[in-house]
Design a protein around this nucleic acid. Structure first.
Lengths: 141, 141, 141, 141
DNA sequence: TTTT
DNA sequence: TTTT
């Protein structure tokens, strides 16, 4: 048995990228920043704040929601799993990238009209507190 | 913003109860035991092992999967949220009960044919490692 | 093997209760509200917002941090496990209560001077982004 | 506010590497495999099983526990956060690596004498069900 | 590149 | 009893 679970709350770094495969399936990519607060060690040393950037990949319904409602600066809750893959860069060097494959997303803030978005999307994702789940059409009750 | 998230791995206490509402929606109830190992304090005192019993409620597709494949003794991973509700018992005393409303379930073992079940159900729940999600008909890739 | 994990983000309902055992150990109790947004079903029915109240119990260092810095209305992240116990109420009726035994806490907001509190307490809880862990005196790096 | 949380259950890929810094602090590195079950798409296509390898880094007490008790093949529960860092490889190419910085670990199995290990280490990590926490010397009750 |  |  195995578990591969990630939960993030952070801010979207730039406008998400959404594209459609030939079969019509939507795929979104976005970067999410999580920031640890700095603190002071007992010996007086300051440990500065630290920002981690996560590559988030979302498919299907989640990607469509991203396209409609998610923008740079927005705060998101993302739940998913870690996936690493390799690719050859422009110099033929093999590169590894670690991505978070999202199973679930919740919009926590809006710089734009995301609040409206959030309640709209919530109406199709009732299984948890206003969470948006991929491609789910039915209702939990 | 708000988060209410529970993740459990434990064993099913007895045969699950599954019923159908008038509208055809399935609802399953089961009890799940999680056990903390005992340990010895530094002063030599033994803290015994401790079993916690959780009331799990599952709806729709998850309930149907439970009906087909989950049995007493099986090991389950359950993800969901905490919900408390009150009811009046047979003596008219108001009682409170805390339940875990499941969003997600994974079968980790089988005493019966659950392994087969698990891979079957996985085929309709591809979003995560063989996880069974309620009412989801589409595929993540 | 077993897992019993809860993660909550919510608001403190009233001033926490902190007491000290004869051996000097601090124990804090507080209630935390998590709220699911309401939404509209596809048939037009409105599902109203729903608030869940959680009984949180914190020990030792966490309880002392609560005593110093946590107040009614504050937003908290709490991580812990579910524990149920029974007691006889004033009428001799056996009652069951479900509590969240906190392993970890993070202060996310302050109505009072909690922001200052948060950075102070963070300096003694370096293992994660400003999280406060019970009785931990050492540093992770 | 920010959250960066990872929970993994998987198997250790090879013997862990443990070293000590000049100041006596222990640091352990290990690889952990999580495996998603394969499944069959509705169109009949088989999606094969998929193994993900995670780089886990543990400090201080956790690293010392790893040194004593964790071996290739063991099953571990690891809780922590995602951290990426860059370094220059032997060809001067800048490389990025993503690691899981562990806050918490639980030994779920042993190929060697890890069961004994687990109960031993549990005695110094009582805050949660036999979980081993870094550098914690006190007891929760 | 975000945010506090 | 909180909060949005």
């Amino acid at each position: 048995m195995s578990l591969n679970k990630v939960m993030l709350i952070g801010n979207v770094g730039k406008e998400p990228d959404v594209r459609y495969l030939d079969n019509g399936v939507a795929v979104a990519s976005l970067t999410l920043a999580t920031t640890e607060r700095g603190y002071r060690l007992q010996n007086g040393t300051d440990v500065p704040e630290r920002t981690e950037w996560h590559n988030i990949v979302l498919w299907r319904g989640l990607a469509e929601t991203v396209e409609k409602y998610v923008h740079k600066g927005d705060k998101l809750f993302v739940e998913g799993k870690i996936r690493s893959r390799s690719y050859d860069d422009q110099n033929g060097v093999k590169r590894y990238i670690t991505e978070i494959f999202a199973d679930n997303m919740e919009m926590l803030s809006s710089r734009s009209q995301a609040n409206q978005a959030s309640s709209l999307s919530a109406s199709s994702s009732p299984s948890a507190s206003a969470q948006v789940q991929g491609g789910k059409e039915d209702l939990p009750f």
